[in-house]
């Protein structure tokens, strides 16, 4: 006997459900969760190293690093005196919420910021929520100003765009206004920061934004 069953269910629903649970649990505790996405080499880890240096004396932060292989990124963060956990996906091109859920019990509950560095890839990570309140996509100047429309999902689902390696702008045919316009065409509500982790240029504005976002989460003890 044949039977038709109307399901109408999100295929990634299991991931999104776990992500929502992570988000609720973290925000209840006043933890601001950020998911950093970019192509490999755009400067996610370098930015996190700088954020670790600048934030660690005032706030408790923790970092979850996603990579296909090696512990290298977590070691770089730990060298800054900040706890870091490495997820090696063993080939998978993105992090999923269940991977974060396995690490969370190991992270101290009273942290202020949890940064999740996704696997370097501008395509697949965009489909998987990890429980973040703020999704950050990085585009480094050497990659070119034409990338937002080539990777519409990543740029249209992000809350924040960081144009990184700004110190290289004088040497590159990178049109800052074009990059911003491309990104804003896809996503008019995007907040854009232009910065260099190397020179520190633009970092203050980004840090102010992070601190404000954290305060908005729990005005009582900010």
């Amino acid at each position: 006997m044949k039977k038709q069953l109307y399901v109408l269910q999100d295929i990634l629903g299991t991931n999104q459900k776990i992500a929502r649970e992570i988000k609720a649990a973290c925000e209840d505790k006043g933890v601001l969760v950020l998911n950093l996405m970019s192509s490999p080499g755009a400067g996610k880890t370098a930015l996190l190293e700088k954020l670790a240096e600048r934030l660690k004396n005032r706030y408790k932060i923790a970092v979850i690093e996603g990579d296909i292989e090696t512990e290298r990124d977590a070691e770089r963060i730990r060298a800054k005196g900040v706890p870091a956990w490495q997820i090696t996906t063993g080939g998978a091109c993105h992090l999923e919420a269940k991977m974060i859920a396995r690490i969370l019990p190991l992270v101290e509950a009273d942290i202020d910021f949890l940064f999740i560095e996704n696997v370097g890839n501008l395509v697949c990570p965009a489909s998987y929520e990890l429980g973040e309140r703020i999704r950050v996509v990085l585009l480094s100047t050497p990659e070119g100003d034409d990338k937002p429309k080539k990777y519409p999902k990543a740029f249209s689902t992000a809350d924040v765009l960081v144009l990184s390696k700004a110190d290289l702008l004088p040497y590159l045919p990178f049109d800052l206004e074009r990059a911003k316009k491309e990104a804003l065409d896809l996503n008019p509500r995007l907040r854009i920061f232009v910065l260099s982790a190397l020179t520190g240029e633009g970092l203050d504005d980004f840090i102010d934004f992070l601190v404000d976002a954290r305060s908005a989460l729990s005005p009582a003890d900010a």
């Binding site: 006997m1 044949k2 039977k3 038709q4 069953l5 109307y6 399901v7 109408l8 999100d10 295929i11």
Partner: peptide
């Protein structure tokens, strides 16, 4: 933006009623 399982069709292996 959707990625949705709309419906499935199954066969119970039993004769039609």
């Amino acid at each position: 933006t959707e990625l949705i399982l709309e419906r499935i069709e199954m066969d119970s292996g039993e004769p039609e009623e």
